[in-house]
Simulated scan of single mutants.
Amino acid sequence: MSWTGFVFVFTAFFATHSVPLRPNIKSGLAALIGARGFSLAYSVLSLGMLTLLIWSAGRAPHVELWPPMPWHRHAVHLGMLGTCLILALSVGRPNPLSFGGARNAVFDPAHPGIVRIFRHPVLAGLALWAGLHLLPNGDLAHVLLFSILAGFAIAGRALIDRRKRREMGDARWIELKSVISKAPFISKPRSWMSLALRIMAGIVAFAALLFLHPFVIGVPVV
């Protein structure tokens, strides 16, 4: 694949990922296929575009910036386990301050759970995933890929903060942030069973990534 093809795929990736940040487009699609349908369709599209983007980076002209080291792989394994746990503890949970929250009306800022640690846990997971993958992928295409994705995730926090603050109003947004910041950094879960199941789901997701990586991405990780 040429650099032109790589740039084209990158552009298509960002174009599709701008949909949630455009309320008019998002609301129109949600009205057409329903909120659940939109979430499912967008999740499938996002995963497909990310896979295509990674595939294209692996086929772009190879320009090595630094060689892979044996410890890189171990660092990625440990960090990806943490990433999977962050996502498992946050996906499908109430979080009115970020995107993707479920049942936001029942969110209790005095018991925010992982939102106390990461206001935008999905973006934190994406930034961590991208940053970790810079280590063993020291060629120019992958450095561009993972650096831009990490920057996209970090910058996305400010964009979502501004949109949520505008939607909720200054007073409500500031109040929520204030109450959340006063909650214990790590608190007793409301349900130990739910916590255990989510942790188990994160570990299973990590194992699945290890198994599927060579088939989906084409690179073995163990």
Results as ranks from 00 to 15, higher is better:
S2M: 06
S2V: 05
A15H: 04
L21N: 05
N24Q: 15
N24C: 03
L29Q: 07
I33F: 10
I33N: 09
F38R: 13
S39D: 14
L40S: 08
Y42C: 13
Y42L: 09
L45C: 12
G48R: 04
L50T: 15
T51R: 11
W55M: 00
S56F: 01
A60N: 09
E64K: 09
E64G: 09
W66N: 05
P67L: 03
W71M: 09
H72I: 06
R73K: 13
A75D: 02
H77D: 13
M80R: 07
M80Q: 14
L81D: 04
G82A: 11
L87S: 02
L89T: 09
P96H: 07
P96L: 05
L97I: 03
L97K: 03
R103F: 07
A105G: 05
P109W: 08
H111Y: 03
H111G: 00
P112Q: 00
P112R: 01
R116L: 00
P121K: 05
V122Y: 07
V122H: 04
L123S: 00
A124W: 01
L126N: 01
W129R: 04
L134Q: 10
L140R: 11
A141S: 12
L145C: 07
A150Y: 01
A153D: 06
I154A: 05
G156S: 08
G156E: 04
A158I: 12
L159Y: 11
D161A: 08
D161Q: 07
R163W: 02
K164E: 04
R165T: 03
R166P: 00
E167P: 01
E175T: 07
K177P: 00
K177Q: 15
K182N: 10
A183N: 07
A183T: 02
K188W: 03
K188D: 01
S191A: 10
W192D: 10
A196R: 14
H213E: 13
V219Q: 03
V219E: 04
P220S: 08
V222L: 15
